[in-house]
Design a protein around this nucleic acid. Structure first.
Lengths: 235, 235
DNA sequence: GCAAAAGTGTTAACTATACACCCATGC
DNA sequence: GCATGGGTGTATAGTTAACACTTTTGC
């Protein structure tokens, strides 16, 4: 009955790359590590997968504990399993990335960890291979966001066109033509224009929009049809 | 020094979804399982991650052992870690998908496992959650192949236009207009036309092409620029 | 000579790009 | 009234999509 008995076992951890968008830069949430080894150094939030827990559930647990948020967008990113990635003991880590609305986060901050948002392109040195985890997660986010409009998960309920544009610019490190981008957005069927304006960014104010939830779900769920776009010149 | 000592450990396995294209259907390579439990049932090829081995290396080892092939295209697919996914003992599996040229495989068959190619859409019942693994891997393959021309990894050195078209049709379960598709291919800069013809498929014969390796590498490696194509109607 | 697959050309619809000005408002 | 960011229109180029016939050759 005891199959596999000569196989080695490993500790299994999850680490989360939590993306947030403050309206200006694309940020990730980092924590001062609360346990040894490498205590008090900046790191991705993580934890060990418990005995009765799947890795996804472990990631959701960590996220809930550290951000107060449940029901957020989470995707598997990659496994980091080099035998030497932690020097003391072998730990294999599954990384996830999460997209959260920073405004929701702000209000639920209830923990005794030191946490801080850092711009994606300007993070402090991190423990182990956590910087590599972030690089990979950024790539995954870009790929996914190229096919599905998931970046809206980073925005609040109500958002403006300039906000979306800035978000895409920061995600892909590009500059967009706002005229063309607005047209594209408005033609996507994803947006519902509200009467209200956001006056914080300018005197004139920018109209708020909200997502058309139904259209959004469809686009998020839609299975991939044929769309090889690898014809694009790789500059 | 012994941090983490109260954390549970798990057995870590890799399972590989090996895709192959025989010119007609997109297939995966399945094996009659050689160990208990579930011995002699069809399953994905896999193995345990060893103490001094990273998961990628474990996957490469399994692939090498079962197909004789090294240096093949492998991508991480997803982690399957439900605590109950194997009933006897907790095993967390990292799945990879590999793209191989079935012709190379044929000639190196040197093992005592029972192995067989099955059409992706017509597999026998598999152990544990292996059928789900295949579904997920297929989705990953589709997503990746939508952005990068990786499907060429499934073709031999020399291939014909109708072969590529069929491959795309089988991958996405669609029917293509061969005129438009051929034009797109020829305009991609990926193909070098050879003098020789493949006469096995028709009396007239179809010209062989080979990949322009340089262009191919560029396109495979190219980092993602801005290309949200989520405007597409989700039918 | 005919069956069977390979290969090619044109037009119309659509999508993406490039580009510059007016608008609304708070101060 | 002016500075600031928000918003819009149009023309062009490029890309995709829809469509049917001719070519080659083994039998």
């Amino acid at each position: 009955m005891d199959f596999y008995k000569n196989e080695p076992s490993v500790l299994l951890a999850v680490d989360c790359v939590i993306f947030g968008f403050n309206g200006d830069s694309l940020d990730i949430l980092l924590f001062k590590r609360a346990i040894e080894p490498e205590i008090n150094k900046w790191s991705l939030p993580g934890g060990f997968v418990q005995a009765e827990e799947s890795p996804e559930v472990a990631a959701a647990r960590v996220l809930k504990k550290l951000t107060g948020l449940g029901n957020i967008y989470v995707e598997e990113s990659a496994v980091f399993g080099d035998p030497k990635r932690e020097s003391h003991r072998r730990v294999v880590s599954i990384t996830y990335y999460a997209l959260i609305d920073v405004h929701k986060y702000q209000h639920v901050i209830t923990d005794d960890y030191e946490a801080r948002w850092f711009p994606l392109n300007d993070c402090p040195p991190l423990i182990f291979d956590h910087e590599e985890m972030i690089r990979v997660a950024k790539g995954r986010l870009r790929s996914k966001a190229a096919l599905y409009p998931i970046l809206f998960e980073l925005l609040p309920e109500k958002f403006t066109l300039p906000q979306i544009a800035t978000l895409y610019e920061k995600t892909y490190d590009i500059v967009l033509d706002r005229r063309n981008f607005n047209r594209k957005l408005l033609g996507s069927g994803l947006l519902i224009k509200l009467k209200e304006k956001d006056k914080t960014g300018s005197r004139r104010g920018a109209y708020y929009f909200k997502l058309d939830k139904k259209v959004y779900k469809e686009k998020i769920m839609s299975f991939l049809r044929y769309l090889p776009s690898w014809n694009i010149d790789s500059e």
